[in-house]
């Protein structure tokens, strides 16, 4: 199950996570670790770019749920962006748009963070 890849970069003091491939029960721990590390170093403004995410299972969705509270407690947020229609549908079924900020693209997500700060 190596068809999953995570890249992390920083843009305007916001951490952007790029997800590629299939996020399921096998690969979810990788993403979990990334979130853990970010929270450990007090980085709470996170954008998850889902442009190349092909599939997300319930275990993958669980990762976001596990950390959103911690992040929000510290006045941060996990924002999702660039979702394909298929992936959006999965998030949508569970009602993620009701709980999470899902932006059309990365720039929009970052802009939201900056405007909140101001």
């Amino acid at each position: 199950m190596s068809n999953f890849k995570i890249d992390i970069r920083e843009k305007e003091n916001i951490n952007v996570i790029d997800l590629k491939g299939y996020l399921d029960a096998h690969t979810a721990p990788e993403l979990e670790k990334i979130f853990q590390n970010l929270i450990e170093v007090q980085k709470f403004n996170i954008v998850v770019n889902c442009e190349e995410l092909n599939y997300i299972s319930s275990a993958g969705l669980g990762v976001f749920m596990a950390y959103i509270e911690d992040v929000r407690k510290h006045n941060g947020d996990i924002k999702l962006s660039n979702m394909s229609a298929k992936v959006y549908n999965v998030f949508d079924l569970l009602g993620f748009p009701l709980l999470y900020d899902i932006a059309k693209d990365e720039a929009e997500a970052i802009k939201k963070f900056i405007s909140v700060k101001k």
Partner: peptide, 18 residues
């Protein structure tokens, strides 16, 4: 497809509201 969050996901408040 009526709207509704998964059980155990958000707070009860949001759940009831949505």
């Amino acid at each position: 497809q009526p709207t509704g969050l998964g059980l155990g996901m958000g707070s009860c408040e949001i759940f009831e509201k949505t």
